[in-house]
Amino acid sequence: MSPFSILLIGLAMSTDAFAAAIGKGVAMGRPRLRDALRTGLIFGTIEAITPLLGWLLGKAAAPYVQAWDHWIAFVLLLGLGLHMIINGVRGDEHDEPEAQADSARSFWLLALTGLATSIDAAAIGVGLAFLDVHIGIVAAVIGLCTFGMVTLGVLLGSKLGEIAGKRAEILGGIVLILVGAGILYEHLQHPLA
């Protein structure tokens, strides 16, 4: 997997966290840099750990599905991409930033939100277990991209609003589908690779 593909995965994985961070920024009103960095660190750390866990799960299953690994990676990326696009188009009607304003700074609330937005990163880890890729580098890139995007999302939350966050999630879904198609295309072009 090329460094550019790894960067695209990192950016795509950070878009749902970015959308959530915009909501957190709105709920915080005028967030301070310290609050944004703290939120980014929590989300980035969780987002870096979950692909490692998914990768371990995928490696355990790898001997049983090696002939289909490229299809599994493609289907997982396609499914995650479509899920992100649907969520971005549909929106979250149940979000209530005003009701969350008092507890938005809570570590556990941030950690739970970070975990909820990182489930897709665990699935990416499962898919990457079937490819020749260094999971530590991918996890670090995902974590750093998420840290940066969440920090930015919190700071800009009150200015960008929810619309930009949903558009970012749609874009992230499209990127995941394209990366999955690239993996499948590369394997079908070079089946022994």
Rank of each mutant, 00 (worst) to 15 (best):
residue 2 S to I: 08
residue 2 S to W: 10
residue 3 P to D: 13
residue 7 L to R: 12
residue 9 I to N: 06
residue 9 I to G: 04
residue 11 L to Y: 05
residue 11 L to T: 01
residue 14 S to K: 04
residue 16 D to S: 10
residue 17 A to D: 09
residue 19 A to L: 12
residue 20 A to P: 12
residue 21 A to M: 10
residue 22 I to C: 11
residue 22 I to S: 11
residue 22 I to H: 10
residue 23 G to D: 07
residue 23 G to T: 14
residue 26 V to Q: 07
residue 29 G to I: 01
residue 30 R to K: 14
residue 31 P to G: 01
residue 32 R to Y: 11
residue 34 R to G: 05
residue 34 R to H: 08
residue 36 A to R: 06
residue 37 L to C: 06
residue 38 R to M: 05
residue 40 G to H: 07
residue 40 G to W: 11
residue 40 G to N: 05
residue 43 F to N: 08
residue 44 G to C: 09
residue 48 A to Q: 04
residue 48 A to Y: 03
residue 51 P to V: 05
residue 52 L to D: 04
residue 53 L to K: 10
residue 56 L to E: 07
residue 57 L to D: 00
residue 57 L to N: 01
residue 58 G to T: 01
residue 58 G to P: 00
residue 60 A to T: 06
residue 61 A to E: 01
residue 63 P to W: 06
residue 63 P to H: 04
residue 66 Q to W: 02
residue 66 Q to R: 10
residue 70 H to D: 08
residue 74 F to Q: 01
residue 75 V to S: 10
residue 75 V to H: 12
residue 76 L to Q: 02
residue 78 L to Y: 12
residue 79 G to W: 07
residue 80 L to D: 04
residue 81 G to Y: 12
residue 82 L to K: 08
residue 84 M to R: 02
residue 85 I to P: 05
residue 85 I to Y: 03
residue 92 D to R: 06
residue 94 H to Q: 13
residue 94 H to F: 11
residue 95 D to K: 14
residue 95 D to R: 12
residue 95 D to I: 07
residue 95 D to W: 13
residue 97 P to L: 02
residue 99 A to E: 15
residue 100 Q to N: 14
residue 100 Q to W: 11
residue 103 S to E: 15
residue 104 A to P: 03
residue 104 A to N: 06
residue 106 S to P: 05
residue 107 F to Y: 14
residue 108 W to D: 09
residue 112 L to C: 13
residue 115 L to D: 09
residue 120 D to T: 00
residue 125 G to H: 08
residue 126 V to H: 02
residue 127 G to V: 01
residue 132 D to S: 15
residue 132 D to Q: 14
residue 133 V to D: 08
residue 135 I to L: 12
residue 138 V to K: 09
residue 139 A to T: 04
residue 144 L to C: 08
residue 144 L to A: 13
residue 146 T to W: 00
residue 146 T to E: 03
residue 147 F to Y: 09
residue 147 F to C: 01
residue 150 V to K: 00
residue 150 V to M: 00
residue 151 T to C: 02
residue 154 V to E: 03
residue 156 L to N: 10
residue 157 G to D: 07
residue 157 G to P: 11
residue 159 K to S: 13
residue 160 L to Y: 07
residue 161 G to W: 00
residue 164 A to F: 15
residue 165 G to W: 02
residue 167 R to V: 13
residue 170 I to V: 13
residue 170 I to K: 03
residue 171 L to Y: 02
residue 172 G to D: 01
residue 173 G to C: 03
residue 173 G to T: 00
residue 174 I to C: 09
residue 174 I to N: 05
residue 175 V to Q: 01
residue 177 I to C: 07
residue 178 L to Q: 07
residue 180 G to Y: 03
residue 181 A to P: 02
residue 182 G to S: 09
residue 184 L to E: 05
residue 184 L to R: 06
residue 185 Y to S: 11
residue 187 H to Y: 13
residue 190 H to G: 05
residue 192 L to F: 15
residue 192 L to Q: 15
residue 193 A to H: 14
